[in-house]
Amino acid sequence: MNAFTLADAPLATPLTLAEVPEAHARHLSRLGLRPGAAFSVLRRSTGGGRIVSVAGSRVALGRALLRGVRVEAAQ
């Protein structure tokens, strides 16, 4: 299984969300970032965060969050 944290995830690659920090699970799920969701990382943002594309929309994630989010390369 090809798993890594969001901080190490490659750009512009189809990914599947595997695990999010429990404290932020609700907040993330509202924007479509639930375990099992298909998404991709578009680019790095100012301050070391990432901008991801999920279900047609764009979501900016802060740097503090990246290490806690586990992702897998989409099958």
């Binding site: 932020h24 907040h27 929309s57 764009r58 802060g62």
Partner: peptide
């Protein structure tokens, strides 16, 4: 303590 999660 909430990290940045924002819809663009």
């Amino acid at each position: 303590s909430e990290p940045l999660v924002i819809d663009l």
